[in-house]
């Protein structure tokens, strides 16, 4: 009797795994594909497909270096994600501040993967309010510079 139960459970497991491997439903068939907002920089710290696949690994490794080793401002950083990818969202502080949640949430909701960074970390970008055009430009340039140096550090 237990043999057949064992077989059934293996069969059930296999079905679950197969279901995961089947391509997502075609467009127009329920949940729309996510379109996360593009970052405001020219390039990310890694190629886009690597980021999509491995961003959690990069962040996980960096988090230990930062918390235990005090290494800050390295190539990978959650703060870096926020600087570049946070967008204004009417649901967050009436859109007054940029937040990373919509960017992360787009894919995480689609894939049904829990996103718990923001249970502790603030997703909100600390932008200086009421910047003049020139200052905003300066901030953006400083940003790019910081990003470049981060990428160089990583290489």
């Amino acid at each position: 009797m237990w043999r057949s139960t064992g077989f059934l459970s293996i069969l059930a497991l296999a079905m679950v795994l197969l279901a995961g491997a089947v391509p997502p439903a075609a467009a127009g068939d329920g949940v729309p594909l996510p379109h996360p907002a593009k970052g405001k920089g020219l390039q990310c710290v890694e190629p886009v497909d690597a980021m999509r696949r491995y961003h959690m690994k990069y962040l996980m490794h960096q988090r230990d270096d930062t918390v235990h080793g005090g290494i800050r401002g390295a190539k990978y950083s959650l703060q870096g994600c926020i600087d570049c990818h946070a967008v204004a969202d009417p649901k967050v502080m009436n859109g007054e501040k940029r937040t990373l949640k919509p960017f992360c949430g787009a894919c995480h909701e689609y894939a049904g993967v829990t996103l718990d960074c923001f249970q502790c970390h603030s997703p909100v970008a600390e932008d200086k309010p009421n910047l003049s055009q020139a200052d905003a430009q300066a901030v953006r340039e400083a940003h790019q510079q910081a990003l470049k140096s981060r990428i160089q550090q990583g290489n």
Binding site: Q79, I82, Q119, C120, H121, S122, E126
Partner: peptide, 15 residues
């Protein structure tokens, strides 16, 4: 549940 954390000082419920 925490709100308004500082970027350099993450803090979260249950820790």
């Amino acid at each position: 549940t925490t709100h308004g954390q500082k970027p350099h000082a993450p803090r979260g419920k249950g820790t």
